[in-house]
Simulated scan of single mutants.
Amino acid sequence: MIRRRSAGFTLIELLVTIGIGAILVMLALPSFTEAIRSNRVTTAANQMLATVNLARGEALRSKSSAHVCPRNDTGTACGSDWTKGMLVWTDENGNGKFEEAEVKRVVEPQQGIQLKFGNFTDIAFDERGRPQPLKAFAFSMQASVCKTNAETRRDFAINRMGQVSMTRAKCQ
Rank of each mutant, 00 (worst) to 15 (best):
C69N: 04
V68Q: 15
K63V: 06
T90F: 03
K84P: 07
A55S: 13
T17H: 00
E13F: 15
E102V: 04
G79S: 12
R37K: 09
A28Q: 05
L29S: 15
L27W: 02
K104S: 15
L11Y: 10
A101Y: 13
T90Y: 09
L11G: 14
F32M: 14
N46K: 15
L24P: 08
L14S: 14
A45D: 05
T76M: 09
R37T: 15
F98P: 00
I12L: 12
N53T: 07
L54D: 11
S65Q: 12
S62K: 05
L24W: 10
S64V: 11
A77Q: 13
I20P: 02
G75E: 04
R61V: 01
T51W: 11
L87R: 08
G96W: 03
T74W: 04
S64D: 03
V103I: 14
R37G: 06
L54G: 15
N39F: 12
A66K: 12
C78M: 07
E92D: 15
I36Y: 06
E13H: 07
M48H: 09
S65W: 00
G96S: 09
V25P: 02
W89K: 02
T83D: 11
G21T: 06
L15N: 02
E92Y: 00
E99R: 11
E102P: 06
M86C: 09
K104V: 07
C78I: 12
M26N: 12
A50Q: 11
E34Y: 04
L60E: 03
E92H: 06
R105H: 11
N46C: 01
T51K: 04
E100A: 15
G85N: 11
S62Q: 10
V25S: 05
R40H: 10
N46T: 07
M86P: 00
T76P: 00
N93L: 01
V103W: 05
N93V: 02
A59S: 12
K63C: 02
A55R: 09
L54R: 10
V103C: 07
N53Y: 03
A50H: 14
K84F: 05
A28E: 03
D73W: 01
P30R: 04
E92G: 11
K84V: 06
T74H: 06
C78G: 04
N39P: 02
T51Y: 10
V88L: 00
A50F: 03
L15F: 12
F98C: 03
T33W: 15
D81L: 10
A28F: 01
G19D: 02
R71V: 05
F32G: 14
L14R: 13
A22E: 06
E13V: 02
S62T: 14
I12R: 00
Q47V: 01
S80H: 14
L11I: 04
F98K: 00
I36E: 04
I18K: 03
I36T: 09
T17F: 01
M86N: 07
I18W: 04
T74G: 04
